[in-house]
Simulated scan of single mutants.
Amino acid sequence: MQHRTVEELMTRDVVRARPDTPFKELVRLLAENDVTAVPVVDDRDRPVGVVSEADLLRKSADQADPSGRVLVPNLEAWERARAEGSRAEELMSAPAVCARPEWNVVEAARLMETQHVKRLPVVDETDRLLGIVSRGDLLRIFLRRDDAIRDEITQDVLWRTMELAPSEVTVEVREGRVALAGSVEFRSLIPVIEQLCRGVDGVVSVTEHIAYRTDDARRPPTGT
């Protein structure tokens, strides 16, 4: 069992900006390439930050409403400095939060979650830009066919990892929802099987109706 890697999911043809790219050029890059953010790279093609639609919209939010009906927001000093910026290096979110191509989906998703970002520039061992991976890219694993998920669970999880015969546990997959049924020798195997199945790319949920012949979860009574 192996998770799909960032390298398999990332976009390789990446639209880039330079630190001195002006505001209007950044807006044009986003609009013409139908993207919501671009990495900002130095002269060695190493990401130094990311400029997103949110970064650019901060400038509009900082403008006074001609009608006077909407108050100018009370921005923090760093927010105001970025709102008043005119080049990528002044507007970008920095430093760039990056991923490595060999990472799996779980690693990339966890970094996005903890850093509160929607995409990650992907860099090599010298920090040069290789691609970019977005939340939408990571979600593509849930487009896997049901039969591919079933085959991976049957062959990699149940047979190779757990060493169970196909007759012991059956697998049904519908729209990524996995249903397990059958019987195993030890009760302690059931949560292990369930957890391994949840780790298969494309699995939405797992339900199990697996019986056991030996309750090895019970501890023998202690002597008095």
Rank of each mutant, 00 (worst) to 15 (best):
residue 110 R to T: 12
residue 31 A to T: 11
residue 165 A to M: 14
residue 85 G to D: 04
residue 223 G to T: 04
residue 90 E to K: 01
residue 130 L to K: 02
residue 164 L to G: 05
residue 171 V to Y: 11
residue 73 P to W: 08
residue 28 R to S: 09
residue 21 T to A: 04
residue 169 V to H: 05
residue 170 T to I: 08
residue 138 L to V: 10
residue 5 T to H: 06
residue 180 L to N: 04
residue 88 A to Q: 06
residue 13 D to T: 01
residue 20 D to F: 02
residue 127 D to Q: 13
residue 202 G to V: 12
residue 69 R to H: 11
residue 103 W to Y: 09
residue 219 R to A: 10
residue 9 L to R: 03
residue 192 V to F: 01
residue 34 D to M: 02
residue 147 D to C: 05
residue 205 S to L: 00
residue 50 V to D: 15
residue 174 R to V: 11
residue 221 P to R: 09
residue 218 R to V: 10
residue 105 V to I: 13
residue 199 G to V: 00
residue 173 V to P: 10
residue 215 D to N: 12
residue 192 V to H: 06
residue 149 I to S: 10
residue 161 T to D: 11
residue 175 E to Q: 06
residue 26 L to V: 02
residue 3 H to A: 15
residue 118 K to C: 05
residue 109 A to L: 12
residue 68 G to I: 10
residue 138 L to H: 09
residue 171 V to I: 13
residue 22 P to I: 02
residue 132 I to D: 03
residue 174 R to E: 13
residue 113 E to A: 15
residue 5 T to P: 02
residue 213 R to K: 11
residue 92 M to Y: 09
residue 71 L to K: 14
residue 48 V to T: 15
residue 72 V to Q: 15
residue 19 P to D: 10
residue 96 A to I: 09
residue 157 V to K: 07
residue 155 Q to H: 15
residue 130 L to F: 00
residue 172 E to F: 05
residue 119 R to K: 14
residue 136 G to Y: 02
residue 128 R to W: 08
residue 39 P to H: 12
residue 20 D to C: 00
residue 168 E to Y: 10
residue 78 W to R: 11
residue 78 W to H: 12
residue 54 A to C: 06
residue 122 V to Y: 03
residue 103 W to H: 07
residue 118 K to M: 07
residue 68 G to H: 14
residue 49 G to A: 12
residue 23 F to T: 00
residue 149 I to A: 09
